[in-house]
Design a protein around this nucleic acid. Sequence first.
DNA 1: CCCTGATTCGC
DNA 2: GCGAATCAGG
Length: 243
Amino acid sequence: MSWTDERIETLKKMWDSGLTATQIAEELGGVSRNAVIGKAHRLGLPSRPSPVKSNEAKAAAAAAPAAAAPAEPKPAPAPKPAPPPAAPRPQAAAPAPAPRPAPPAPAAPVDDAEFDSDSEAAEPAAPRAPQPVLRSVGPGGFIRQNPGEQAPPSTPAPPRRLVPAKPSEAIAGKTTLLDLNDKICKWPLGHPGEPDFHFCGEKVNPGFPYCVEHCGHAYQAQLPRRDRRPAPTMPFGGTPRPR
DNA sequence: CCCTGATTCGC
DNA sequence: GCGAATCAGG
């Protein structure tokens, strides 16, 4: 399989949606997850929380002893033909202030307790809210980071597809991956790979990856423990609606 | 073990 | 440019 324009586009969007390389590979078909990752990097797509610590400082010595390392534990920073002006290794790439769905976490129980105007100001309309301890919940009931907050290296474990990729052309008028862009709500509905998997598609709340409505679901103040329910776990995109 | 993404390097 | 092999952390 070759990287056609459409396939690249799909890759970008799925990558941006926080899907794992494996999921993307399966969805695209004909490619391995390595291919997806390799392509993603070649495309310059933003790095995502990887299990591997990003030791920028010491990373130098961690080159590639596997390929050809006879027996020379020479940690000497091989003076490679380093480009004079530019930085040697653009390892630290932390641009996207935009939160992305991923970190699984003890689903934050969200009772249908509404936030009145006189209550906590957890309005999504206030992206730069001074509140430091304002957690939010992502599409699977995942704890999310606030905009501008760099994600701690939490293990991304988006729900796995349980069904093989299907042609899935049963969806018409639905917002598919191909329809995603910076302006529309990326709130996923259904599971990737399922015939009816699609995205919200509403206009996003500026500064957020979701529309106003889904921001309301995604960004909520952490409720007091006492008010939590044991496990209101919500499957990936399981029709997030107030209970 | 499994998973993940990052990186390298032969093609 | 591509991606298998490999690395490395969780």
